[in-house]
Design a binder for these strands. Structure first.
Lengths: 164, 164
DNA sequence: GGCATTCACGGGCATATGCCCATATCTTAG
DNA sequence: CTAAGATATGGGCATATGCCCGTGAATGCC
């Protein structure tokens, strides 16, 4: 050991404190906000992810029906995860899966009549929650936050492994 | 129908498009980032939440051992959820639960020797991930984002129901 | 055309998340 | 001191999330 090792100056790059974890912060915020939206959506019997899925299916299938793969990509979700998450919705007859005629590997995800009606009603509850959040957090900051988050969600650089 | 209904001006408050869901954006970003950190932490066999828990236990027990309840609050996590999440860590001998002497209802969560060693090693992997994220996202923006997220995570207004 | 590769999906496993309810313990009103 | 209420935790259930692997289908290369 060098004689003056003990006198070395403090390293210029102090170690990041563990409280500064972006992932941890995101997950904490996610838990809190999910709680908030889940409570708001509870009267319709939907969890926030289920609402998101129905919403995404509705939005994505304006032009042509979406496949599971496309939907998973849109949700920034593993394909298998989406598959699992669709089951309760299918059981409740909110969506239906149809094999594609073009490519028999693919399955189209479609809203049923009941699914559309449920989404419609949930939309009101969701809007209420969103407005309540914006009242607390500020309308403009909320919009900026969403933009930042969606930017992160869509950033492929953040994954060595492909997703969706 | 009023004769000039078709000429009505655009409604002042257009309905929020469903893509503008703060909860959905948060969850999508959370999935993407968790993926990123999980991959980074994989060599030590820890998921991002497990790393967070170990880190929080270490940080929280500087003065006196933390109880499950306190830990759950710090993690913005349901108490039961924390209980479930501790099991794999306990099984792997990374933490140990001790009944409190003061209050026999409480259980203290403590890192084992192996737990401390694992945390130590994981810290390097985590730092690497955090730095990689900051390289992509920017150091300052990352710090600001964490602050915003932790602000949301700690905002009790966002829950009618108490958490943790 | 035939075979290797790629792609879309499902099944099984493990963890993450939260609800409801039960139990044991502590606290406090009386 | 005792009964009622509050607090800390666990067990069971359901969904959320993602990995690995297998299967069937399309695509591309010779």
């Amino acid at each position: 050991m060098p004689v003056n090792a003990r006198n070395k100056p403090t390293p210029k790059q102090p170690p990041l404190p563990r409280s500064d974890c972006t992932c941890g912060s995101l997950r904490k915020a996610s838990r809190r906000i999910s709680q908030f939206y889940d409570t708001a959506l509870a009267p319709m019997g939907l969890k926030s992810t289920q609402y998101s899925i129905l919403s995404e299916v509705d939005r994505g299938s304006r032009l042509k029906p979406v496949t599971m793969c496309e939907l998973a990509t849109a949700m920034v979700m593993d394909r298998s995860t989406l598959g699992h998450n669709l089951k309760p919705l299918e059981r409740e007859d909110l969506i239906i899966l149809r094999p594609s005629a073009d490519d028999r590997r693919k399955r189209h995800v479609e809203l049923t009549k009941k699914g559309r009606a449920t989404l419609q009603k949930s939309l009101r509850l969701w809007r209420h929650a969103e407005q309540r959040f914006e009242k607390i957090f500020g309308k403009q900051p909320a919009a900026e936050l969403r933009a930042v988050l969606l930017g992160i969600a869509g950033n492929k650089q953040l994954n060595s492994l492909p997703i969706g």
